[in-house]
Amino acid sequence: MQYKNLGRSGLKVSQLSYGAWVSFGNQVDAKEAKSLLQCCRDHGVNFFDNAEVYANGRAEEIMGQAIRELGWKRSDIVVSTKIFWGGPGPNDKGLSRKHIIEGTKASLKRLEMDYVDVIYCHRPDISTPIEETVRAMNYVIDHGWAFYWGTSEWSAQQITEAWAVAERLDLIGPIVEQPEYNLFSRHKVESEYLPLYSNYGLGLTTWSPLASGVLTGKYSKGVIPSDSRFAIENYKNLANRSLVDDVLRKVNGLKPIADELHVPLAQLAIAWCASNPNVSSVITGATKESQIQENMKAIDVIPLLTPEIMEKIEAVVQTKPKRQESYR
């Protein structure tokens, strides 16, 4: 496993990480979680991602219980969670000072931890002034409940505004963004955020490298396996959006490239994400140890992605975003 600095910070995260979205609390219980997390550690993963909204808090409880029972040394791992959707009440959601502080405390209680290493604003909150959010995130850091803060699915403009507030008030700005990034979702990482990497040293922990499993090739025939996430009732709308003919045709077009490298399609797709120098860590998901073992082999695929191979991939997917003139 390789370790990269999280943006311009001194925090080192494994190039591949593990996230609890969908799996923990929906498909995986605490006993299964222990074996999955240990499998990740055995492969050098030190970064584990969660959120208050995952399985309505149950994902944090499962991760916290599993880590406690595994007896890991806290300083050996990097744990993150995200705040935005904490419950049904009017103040249980969003990025107000009230919810950030109460939500953080509730997450730490569920995780059975004194602190998380990174805490994210899970979405932008247009109903709360960015200054209020920046001040609240710094309050969380000042109290030792988190060491760093970041954003998830914010626009470049919103991140820039947050940094402007932080610099004006001599506070800490967001050091990391967590966007979706895969062969079919590229605009933010490869175009919109370009100025942020140099201006603020922004790091990325990207999610959905396999486009919710589409890039494994298991849906290529239009059949949804019963043990896949698209078979879960809550994710059937996502399946309808994702499994379109054009996407499946491109997935099939990538298979010969993976075959040429003698690797599974999933490893090619994960390695492609990790090869972007602006990506600090690629968050993977898995419900089986065998999936983790396969995903982790993507590290060995990264050196195989020569310019020639990257051009072949581009020729198939044709998803490279056009760079705006001002970013050149």
Rank of each mutant, 00 (worst) to 15 (best):
I130T: 10
I130Q: 04
E132I: 00
T133E: 02
N138Q: 09
N138C: 07
Y139F: 13
Y139R: 12
V140R: 04
V140I: 15
D142P: 08
W149S: 11
G150K: 01
G150T: 05
T151M: 08
S152R: 03
S152V: 06
E153K: 09
E153C: 06
W154Y: 14
W154F: 13
S155L: 05
A156G: 14
A156P: 11
Q157F: 14
Q158S: 15
T160A: 14
A162N: 06
A164R: 13
V165M: 07
V165N: 07
V165G: 06
A166Y: 01
R168L: 09
R168A: 14
D170K: 11
L171P: 00
G173V: 07
G173N: 11
V176I: 10
P179G: 02
P179A: 02
E180K: 12
L183A: 02
L183H: 00
F184A: 04
S185N: 13
S185Q: 14
R186Y: 10
K188D: 07
K188C: 02
K188M: 03
E190W: 06
Y193W: 04
Y193F: 15
L194K: 12
P195D: 01
Y200V: 01
Y200S: 06
G201N: 09
L202V: 03
G203R: 01
G203N: 04
L204H: 01
L204A: 05
T205V: 09
T206G: 01
S208E: 03
P209W: 02
L210Q: 04
L210Y: 03
A211T: 01
A211P: 08
S212V: 01
V214T: 09
V214H: 02
V214R: 02
V214P: 00
T216Q: 08
T216Y: 05
T216M: 06
G217K: 08
G217L: 06
G217P: 07
S220D: 15
K221T: 14
K221F: 13
G222W: 12
P225R: 04
P225C: 07
P225G: 05
P225S: 04
S226A: 15
S226T: 14
S228R: 13
S228Q: 14
S228W: 12
R229Y: 05
F230M: 13
F230K: 11
A231P: 07
A231I: 04
A231V: 07
N234M: 14
Y235V: 05
N237H: 11
L238K: 10
N240M: 10
N240V: 08
R241A: 15
S242W: 15
L243I: 12
L243F: 09
L243S: 11
D245Y: 12
D246C: 12
L248Q: 10
L248E: 07
R249C: 15
N252S: 14
N252V: 08
G253F: 12
I257Q: 00
A258Q: 03
A258N: 05
A258R: 02
D259M: 05
D259F: 05
E260D: 10
E260K: 02
E260P: 00
V263K: 06
L265H: 01
A266Q: 09
L268H: 08
L268A: 08
L268Y: 06
L268E: 04
A269W: 03
A269F: 02
I270N: 05
A271S: 10
W272T: 01
C273Q: 07
N278R: 10
N278Y: 10
N278T: 06
